[in-house]
């Protein structure tokens, strides 16, 4: 499993995004983090070629949420054969926007002195959950009523042996805020909100029955195409 972070969202372990055989010896592994509002792409570059690598640069294609490098890719010294460097690339969300399929797809180009290489990766949506995503309770009730039923999506989150308190606290570490909790017919009903970096609000109802590790998550959003990715983020956060 991945590493938690003290002051931020869940961070998945690094995965290989660009295998050396597809990039003339350059191997890239990475993951995404969000810590106190700062998004970054944490990269590991390994030189598996026979020659030194220099002149690194990185560029993102337009993407659904405008993710873009906030600084150049800083590799301070030439990368010798068999050498690995760890780099944290700060990101912002003010880049060009183009809806991608799937929504969380990111196309990346990396260059060095040898060539330019391309790869795609999927980012977890919770890196876009902002710190001030707790909706006012009155606003929540009004918005819940206002969003049409067609925009409600329902999901099952299976095999999650946590109680309502643990669920709330885990989700809050990733900027999903519990606004109200009710117990009806022996079920805990959690009402929650989150907001994405582009201003989209997502309202949630999470049903938990004591002793039952399967939860029902209902999401209401004016942009319903984000719902399945938000559900995936819930699963990732709750199961790690």
């Amino acid at each position: 499993s991945g590493v938690g972070s003290l002051s931020g969202s869940y961070v998945a372990p690094k995965a290989v995004w660009l295998p050396a055989m597809k990039a003339k010896g350059l191997e890239i592994s990475g993951t995404f983090t969000r810590q106190v509002g700062a998004i970054s792409m944490d990269l590991q570059l390994t030189n598996k070629a026979l020659q030194v690598m220099t002149d690194f640069a990185i560029q993102f294609n337009r993407n659904s949420f405008g993710l873009a490098p906030a600084a150049p890719l800083q590799v301070h010294a030439p990368l010798s054969p068999n050498q690995t460097v760890e780099i944290s690339l700060p990101l912002n969300t003010v880049g060009s926007v183009m809806k991608m399929e799937p929504l969380n797809n990111l196309q990346v180009a990396v260059k060095n002195n040898i060539d330019v290489f391309y790869f795609s990766t999927l980012y977890p949506l919770h890196i876009l959950f902002v710190e001030d995503g707790k909706m006012d309770r009155q606003m929540f009730l009004a918005t819940w009523k206002d969003i049409p039923n067609e925009n409600e999506a329902q999901f099952q989150i299976r095999d999650c042996p946590l109680n309502a308190e643990a669920v709330s606290s885990k989700l809050q570490n990733s900027n999903v805020f519990t606004i109200a909790k009710r117990n009806v017919e022996a079920q805990d009903m959690l009402y929650q909100s989150l907001r994405l970096t582009n201003g989209i609000w997502v309202l949630a109802e999470l049903r938990i029955q004591p002793g039952n590790p399967n939860f029902t998550l209902s999401l209401k959003c004016r942009a319903p195409e984000v719902s399945q990715h938000v559900c995936q983020a819930y699963e990732t956060i709750l199961k790690n």
Binding site: R182, V184, S218
Partner: peptide, 20 residues
């Protein structure tokens, strides 16, 4: 929580979702 009528509104919402 403040007794501003919202507590009751959330209770009604939860009830209506359980017994539509």
């Amino acid at each position: 929580e403040l007794d501003d009528g919202l507590d009751e509104a959330f209770s009604r919402l939860a009830q209506s979702r359980t017994n539509p």
